[in-house]
């Protein structure tokens, strides 16, 4: 067990946990956050994605010890209904979800990706987001939402 300090969505937290435990379990079990989700535990799907100092990472394989002193942002901290991130607005406007369990991975990954590649083309987006999973088949809506958000970010 080890005491680890970091910030989640702008708030400092201290947890006393197995330092090898993936960050996901701290967020969900210790801090009772509703996102991110457990999808695979293997960094193959993205449902657990959070930002670590602005980079999209898969929290299901990131040991909690690795976030010591860093800033973790979840989709809850990405934006709020009052002050939404453009991707969150676009997701609502485009009505992307089927079940919605995957959307955390797409929104958080795309948010980090668009920051670096605001003018990404259709082909760039397909490469940049490759590997994320959506089982309900919302991919066409996802592309629409990201392009809508791109316009707002531009």
């Amino acid at each position: 067990m080890a005491k680890i300090n970091f910030a989640v969505d702008g708030k400092p937290v201290t947890v006393d946990v197995d330092p090898n435990m993936p960050l996901l379990y701290t967020l969900r079990d210790d801090l009772k956050m509703k996102n991110p989700h457990f999808g695979c535990g293997l960094a193959q799907c993205g449902a657990c994605t959070v930002h670590l100092d602005g980079e999209a990472i898969r929290s299901c394989v990131m040991p909690v010890s690795a976030v010591k002193g860093k800033k973790v942002t979840t989709i809850y901290g990405l934006g709020t209904p009052e002050k939404p991130h453009p991707l969150q607005t676009a997701y609502v406007q485009e009505q992307v979800p089927q079940c919605g369990y995957c959307l955390n991975g797409w929104v958080m990954t795309a948010a980090a990706y668009l920051k670096k590649n605001p003018k990404a083309s259709d082909a760039d987006l397909r490469e940049g987001l490759s590997g994320l999973k959506c089982r309900c088949g919302t991919h066409v809506s996802i592309m629409r939402a990201i392009k809508r958000a791109q316009q707002q970010l531009a």
């Binding site: 969900r28 009772k32 956050m33 509703k34 996102n35 989700h37 457990f38 979840t74 989709i75 809850y76 934006g79 709020t80 209904p81 939404p84 969150q88 997701y91 609502v92 009505q95 992307v96 979800p97 919605g100 369990y101 959307l103 955390n104 929104v107």
Partner: peptide
């Protein structure tokens, strides 16, 4: 008319069975 569950999912405020 739009779905009613989208915003809660997009802002991470909605309860899932996993929560």
């Amino acid at each position: 008319f739009p779905r009613r569950d989208v915003a809660g999912k997009v802002f991470g405020t909605r309860d899932w069975v996993t929560d």
